[in-house]
């Protein structure tokens, strides 16, 4: 790499001839970078693209030939989507599961955002003893595998809390669509450590003088939080919101345990897993099903991606 030193050094010299040369080189460089980055991006997309093509191919074609043969011998069908969307028998109404997914996801995103931003603010800007240890403890909770939390949490819902024979909290006794509440609760619990970690990173890096000034003006913590911090971290909230949305929308395990499997409460993932799973390697259903489930997160992601980048930008301002 040392050989590169004089050339770039030359580029910095302000003489006319070398400037043109460096400009040409720079354009060349950026062109190479463009080509390379696009090639990588395309390679990165090939597996998804293959699945996408496959999802429109007839069953026997999927099972016997590669998806790339579709270019030389195009055979396409909507049959796979027909099967996945309208299915067979009693539980064909995918739309019903779609609504369940929405009803599960929206509150499961809002609650942790609100709670975690409050907590992150307190951990970053309110002086109290042991706050660093508390933050570290919450951070460390990220490692608790949610699988191990399933049974105790389910017990919490179905039998309540009893300490030394005294019923402290009653059982929830929810039925049908009321079970959404359990799923919201569970998702909120599981999301909090990461949310606090992420938001704390942003909030703690907000300029301290801003807070000082507000304190001097006599603003209370709730007011500072509402009027100064919240507007500043909106992009960060959006960033976490996307993460949480993707996670909840794609979740299978939590929904399986806390929502039960009927069409009253089970989300799309549960239904698609059933569709794909009951007949083994039914690639045609798997491919179409995978795409149906990807569509919504993709739309959400693409439409919010602006916020996402900005959100992460905000956090690293002070580097």
């Amino acid at each position: 790499m040392t050989t590169a030193t004089p050339t770039v050094g030359a580029g910095a010299q302000a003489t006319g001839a070398t400037t043109t040369a460096s400009r040409v080189r720079k354009r060349l460089n950026s062109r190479t970078a463009t080509v390379v980055s696009i090639v990588i991006a395309v390679l990165w997309t090939v597996p998804t693209f293959g699945l996408f093509i496959s999802s429109f191919r007839p069953e026997d074609q999927i099972k016997t030939t590669g998806w790339w043969t579709a270019f030389t011998d195009p055979q396409f069908t909507l049959e796979n989507y027909q099967q996945v969307l309208f299915g067979s028998g009693s539980s064909g109404r995918l739309i019903s599961y779609f609504i369940n997914s929405l009803a599960i996801t929206i509150p499961s995103v809002l609650f942790p955002i609100a709670f975690a931003s409050l907590a992150a603010y307190a951990l970053a800007w309110i002086n109290f003893r042991g706050r660093d240890w508390l933050y570290i403890a919450i951070f460390a909770l990220q490692i608790v595998p949610l699988q191990m939390a399933l049974v105790p949490l389910l017990k919490f819902f179905s039998t309540g809390v009893t300490i030394a024979g005294v019923q402290v909290l009653p059982a929830w006794n929810l039925v049908d669509e009321q079970k959404f509440a359990q799923v919201w609760f569970a998702h909120t619990c599981f999301a909090l450590p990461f949310a606090v970690f992420l938001l704390h990173n942003f909030i703690s890096q907000l300029p301290g003088d801003l807070m000082e000034a507000a304190r001097v003006d006599g603003a209370s913590h709730p007011r500072i939080f509402r009027t100064i911090v919240l507007p500043l971290i909106t992009p960060a909230l959006a960033a976490f919101g996307i993460f949480q949305f993707l996670w909840v929308w794609n979740d299978l395990l939590v929904a399986l345990i806390f929502a039960d499997g009927g069409d009253e409460t089970a989300p799309l993932t549960v239904r698609l897993a059933e569709l794909a799973g009951s007949r083994g390697n039914e690639w045609q259903r798997l491919t179409a099903g995978a795409f149906v489930s990807i569509v919504v997160p993709l739309i959400v992601f693409l439409s919010l991606q602006r916020y996402f980048v900005r959100g992460l930008l905000a956090g690293s301002v002070k580097g």
Binding site: F115, A116, L118, A119, Y121, A122, L123, I126, N127, F128, R129, R131, L134, I138, L141, V144, M148, A149, V151, P152, L153, F156, F185, A186, T188, C189, F190, L192, P193, V196, S220, H221, P222, F225
Partner: peptide, 26 residues
Amino acid sequence: EGLFALFFLLPTLLLLAVGLVGPAIR
């Protein structure tokens, strides 16, 4: 200050206690 912090942290701490701390100890 501590009181404020407690209120800001209360929902998070309660949920974490039920959803993660309890299960981790168990």
